[in-house]
Amino acid sequence: MTPNSSTSEALAPGVDTPGVDTPGVNEAATATPEEVDAPKRIASTWEIARTFNEISLSSFGGGLSAWSREMVVARRKWMDDPEFLSALTICRILPGANQVNMAVFVGTKLNGIRGAGAALAGLIAMPTVLLMGIAALYAAFQHSHAVQHVLSGFAAAAVAMTFQMVWKTGRTTLTSIVPLLLFAATFVLSGLLRWPLWCTLLITAPFGIAWAWRRAHRRDAARAAS
């Protein structure tokens, strides 16, 4: 489940969220010097697909990024840590599921469009087939009381994992009044008033970006003045 405990601990929490440069992630960049040397750059489509299939099937919940790093950086040596982490950040900024984006990014770097396709297929093919099997079973047994009770337990755990993610990422990002207000406004619009996503983003995103932009400029000005 969790390879290489120290680095996976550092990478696992909050990695599915954009813009959260947790200290743990930065530690991971420096903590493993033995893995940084000479990333190799070419891989066959089969090797790429097999690697991402392994990443996908051996991870669960928030552990995917940790496994990606373990395989891509430590074992296959396809990227070094700074490269991997900056790619992760890019993939968080771009729309889409972060893990899917990351697979496409790594695959592209290794073998162009064929590498991207191989990584994507490796990442999602087996889990999709597995989920369709579960979906068929669910359709047959969803009214069984035993299944309902087990699933309600799973649902509690899944919601708890979501709240844990809010807690972990919130602690590092909601550090002043403006981000707190943005967070609260987004929650109210999306969670309570049930606005469509694009309406919510249309209202909140410009404020967020303008705030971060002005803050960066003020920091630069302060640095220049001192």
């Binding site: 813009g19 990422t169 990002t173 909601l174 943005l182 987004t186 999306s190 969670g191 971060a212 932009w213």
Partner: peptide
Amino acid sequence: HAFQDGLAPITVGLILAGGVIVA
């Protein structure tokens, strides 16, 4: 950086909303 930092609190809000809706 502005894009990333500015969207981060919004994302946390969306994730909380998802959890609450499912709960």
